[in-house]
Simulated assay, not measured.
Amino acid sequence: MEEVTMLKAVLLDISGVLTEDGEALPGALEAVARLQERDLTLRFLTNTSRRTSAKVCEDLQALGFDVAPAQVFTAPGAIRRYLARHRLCPYLLIHERLEPEFADLPSGQPDAVVLGDAEQRLDYAHLDEAFRLLLDGAPLLAVGTNRYFRQAGTLHLDAGPFVRALEYAAGVEAHVLGKPAGDFFHAVLEEAGVAPDEALMVGDDVECDVVAAMDVGLQACLVRSGKYCAGDEDKAPEARCEASLADLVEALLATR
């Protein structure tokens, strides 16, 4: 297959592809190790907004994955870099465990709203404060537009519905800095030194991982693990679809 022979990088979504509920998915450790034995650049991507970038890397290492901090790209990390570059002071509507990610930023009167999966903080008082800041002209910076995530075998609301609520109420459009934003994928590709058509994105979210990656020119594979639901592959008929990362790696390496 021509697209496989030119493959130089594999971008791996973490939750639902490598891990679920804090454990490595069957075959994931071996699959990553096999990719690392080949001349392929690996990057690990996540929109999670309940853990810092450092914690994400630490957790992967604890499970046995050979991952370096520079290989991990998170949506909150992208937001922190954006805030620092534009010298913005954020109103952080985020999970308490994520606060260290933004600890080095200046404090003061907020002039930007950062919205992630804040769990219990996504109450009326916090959303109303964010709404007032948006009316005053603060930009809305979002980790992503994911509608839900999977935990302990069930689906739960993610940050996306709350992003849409604030957009609707304040009449603004969020600047999404994680998946499915094209800028997020381009930043990863630029750091890895590969062109879009030389990289394969592997994810369990057909919209935010697979379709979004293909929209910016990447190859993509949907795995039937994590938040995958039957029929998702019909939304991205041009993408590969495999039962798991292990099955994908087996197929990829068989053609190299």
Rank of each mutant, 00 (worst) to 15 (best):
P90Y: 13
E96S: 14
R97L: 14
E101I: 11
D104I: 04
Q109D: 11
D111C: 08
V114F: 00
V114A: 05
G116F: 03
E119N: 02
R121W: 06
L122F: 02
D123S: 00
Y124L: 09
A125L: 09
D128V: 01
A130N: 03
A130Y: 00
L133I: 13
D136R: 15
G137N: 12
A138E: 12
L141H: 00
A142L: 13
G144H: 14
R150W: 04
G153I: 03
G153N: 08
H156Y: 07
L157E: 10
D158C: 01
D158V: 04
A159T: 15
P161Y: 07
P161S: 01
P161N: 05
V163W: 07
V163M: 06
A165I: 10
L166G: 01
L166Y: 10
A169R: 06
A170F: 03
G171W: 07
V172N: 03
V176Y: 07
V176H: 05
L177P: 08
K179I: 06
A181S: 15
D183N: 13
F185T: 07
F185C: 07
A187Q: 14
A192M: 06
A192Q: 01
A192G: 01
V194S: 01
A195H: 03
A199W: 00
M201Q: 03
D204Q: 12
E207S: 05
E207F: 06
C208L: 14
V210S: 02
A213M: 04
M214S: 00
G217H: 09
G226C: 12
G226P: 06
K227V: 06
K227N: 03
C229T: 15
